[in-house]
């Protein structure tokens, strides 16, 4: 019972230590020599192991980027797969240093879990997956439907709000893991599978005939997904926050994996600050002057990571949409590096 042992270690840490154990995450990570990163149990595009056990995905890249910034080595990450319901306890108990697992930023999670969200890696919303043979064209036609969902998610609550709000009946069956939920949906136990839209596309790939299933047009919620760290360690919070901002700024400035070393030689004032050839912004964060170079060299800029994992260059083929940069019609916007 993973959950019980996580909670016990949390209780032991809370009961027997005299001060916050986690005030110095950066030091702990450096001493350990490896970053411990909480991810999903296998969600293509966001965090999934390939057949050799290598983790890839947009959420995975955030952790690799942090490891690159800290160690200049993107492989120094231990990935800890977590189900939706175990993820927060794993962060609280100190088993992981950062949780990067398609997690929605909400006020209750930001305030009651002893955790802080560091930013938004992917702007998402919740949707419904149905068999095309049911000939349903809108979520409003789903009255009396049986719905499969993963337990411990915002999706479980949103679906209750949506059906109640629209005066529709429903039966929700909540499963421990995504695989169990999608299998039950495939077996016909449920008419609908619901989760964040990006995850619908990812899970659809696991079905025997993905083309027989379609995503309904309605998006019923806001699901800004992002990484979390423990409350109370501002330095570590800044590092994780600015790792994503560095990837976004790199894309905005046209810095990518192939030109990063070349552009590093530029003498434009703005680029000199970014690359640390002028000033010491990286050191102020607790990292090194060349932190942005390390990050982009390892995982590329935000756009590259997006394309490779979930976008046009991936099996998911999701359009940039809201996740396009702010100056290209989207809402991804990072504060400047200065």
């Amino acid at each position: 019972m993973k959950r019980v042992s996580l909670v016990l270690s949390l209780a032991i840490v809370a009961g027997f230590t005299t001060q916050a154990v986690n005030a110095q995450t950066l030091k702990t990570v450096k001493d350990r020599g490896i970053l411990s990163c909480g991810v999903s149990q296998g969600l293509p595009g966001f965090s999934a192991p390939d057949d050799k056990g290598n983790w890839t995905g947009l959420d995975v890249d955030i952790c690799r980027a942090i490891a690159a910034a800290v160690f200049d080595d993107a492989t120094k990450v231990k990935f800890v797969p977590l189900s939706a319901k175990d993820r927060f306890t794993a962060l609280q108990s100190g088993e992981i240093d950062v949780l990067s697992r398609n997690t929605t930023w909400t006020v209750s999670r930001d305030t009651s879990l002893g955790a802080n969200f560091t930013g938004v890696t992917y702007y998402d919303g919740q949707g419904f997956l149905v068999k095309k043979s049911l000939k349903v064209n809108s979520a409003l036609e789903l009255n009396s439907a049986s719905i499969c969902v993963q337990t411990g998610t915002t999706n479980e609550q949103n679906v209750a709000d949506y059906f109640k709000g629209n005066n529709m009946k429903y039966e929700v069956i909540a499963f421990g893991t995504a695989d169990e939920a999608i299998k039950a949906y495939e077996s016909g136990r449920c008419d609908v599978f619901t989760s964040d839209v990006s995850q619908l596309y990812a899970q659809r790939l696991k079905l025997a005939t993905p083309a027989d299933h379609g995503v309904l047009p309605e998006v019923i919620s806001k699901e800004p997904l992002g990484p979390l760290v423990r409350h109370g360690d501002d330095q570590w919070f800044d590092i994780v926050k600015w790792t994503l901002f560095a990837m976004l700024n790199a894309e905005e400035l046209g810095i990518n994996q192939s030109n990063v070393l070349e552009m590093g030689k530029s003498d434009k004032p703005e680029l000199k600050r970014v690359f640390g050839t002028d000033g010491n912004l990286g050191e102020q964060l607790g990292l090194t002057k060349d932190w942005v170079t390390r990050i982009v060299k390892a995982v590329g800029n935000y756009g590259e990571s997006f394309d490779r994992n979930v976008g046009a260059g991936s099996k998911l083929g999701i359009a940039r949409g809201l996740n396009q940069l702010w100056n290209k019609g989207g809402i991804q916007y990072a504060p400047p590096i200065r």
């Binding site: 959950r3 019980v4 996580l6 909670v7 016990l8 949390l10 209780a11 809370a14 939706a84 319901k85 993820r87 927060f88 306890t89 609280q92 209750s108 999670r109 009651s112 879990l113 002893g114 337990t151 411990g152 998610t153 479980e156 609550q157 909540a174 421990g176």
Partner: peptide
Amino acid sequence: GTTLSQTGQAIEII
């Protein structure tokens, strides 16, 4: 499961 992850009150609930 669900209540624990919605409230985050792991120790009490377990």
